[in-house]
């Protein structure tokens, strides 16, 4: 474990907490894409299949349980909670997950570290996470008003992956034969997809104006 990875995991945890706070306290999921939340639940399910078979550390297991529990809770809130679901904008959140899942699955079957079920599912989860934010970014373009909590949630979600890249550089430098091209490339694509959001988020912070994405 290194400081980059710990900060990254805490940033990721913070993003989930910000979102759960928004949904649980103000009982609203306005501006949040259910599609992205569902994709993240799938990402964690496919990535943590080894939660009962491979024990890495208590930290690792506890964090996996937290990410699984929170991602499914958020999906449950947005789908079934009688108040929260009313603020879900299903007419705007129309991105078809299947267009993201199928290519990622095919790619995972073609490019993986070992052709076993768990490994292909693990690889699929990295490819899928790289693009899982797309429905959310599309929704942001469509809904003009982005409230602060939503903006902070997306910023933290993007920042955690950028921090993971620092962790991978650190581990590549300090650990002999630590090479994992699949997470590296996926993580890079994922972070780049946040590029323009980070830019507008920074502008809104610098000029102290409401976050607006160009149409």
């Amino acid at each position: 474990m290194n400081i980059f990875r710990l900060t990254a995991d805490m940033t990721h945890l913070m993003s989930v907490i910000v979102l759960l706070l928004k949904i649980h306290t103000i009982k609203s999921c306005a501006g949040i894409s259910l599609k992205t939340q569902e994709l993240y639940a799938i990402v964690f399910t496919c990535r943590y299949l080894d939660i009962f078979t491979d024990f890495i550390s208590f930290y690792n297991t506890i964090m996996k349980v937290i990410f699984l529990w929170t991602s499914f809770s958020i999906v449950w809130y947005m789908r079934y909670h009688k108040i929260v679901r009313r603020s879900y904008d299903k007419d705007q959140d129309t991105f078809r997950h299947v267009f993201l899942m199928l290519p990622c699955l095919v790619l995972a079957l073609l490019i993986n570290e070992r052709f076993t079920f768990k490994e292909v599912m693990w690889t699929f989860s990295f490819y899928l996470e790289a693009v899982a934010i797309l429905p959310q970014l599309v929704l942001l373009q469509r809904t003009r008003n982005i409230d602060n909590l939503t903006g902070q949630y997306i910023f933290l979600l993007g920042a955690y992956r950028a921090l993971y890249i620092l962790n991978w550089i650190y581990r590549y430098v300090t650990e002999p034969n630590y090479v994992h091209w699949i997470p590296w490339m996926s993580g890079l694509v994922q972070t780049l997809l946040y590029g323009d959001f980070f830019y507008y988020y920074f502008l809104s912070w610098k000029n102290n104006v409401k976050l607006q994405l160009p149409a």
């Binding site: 995991d9 990535r47 080894d50 964090m63 962790n167």
Partner: peptide, 10 residues
């Protein structure tokens, strides 16, 4: 020696 086949990151 941590067996590298195990994925130790979240």
């Amino acid at each position: 020696k941590e067996n590298t086949s195990k994925h130790d990151e979240l």
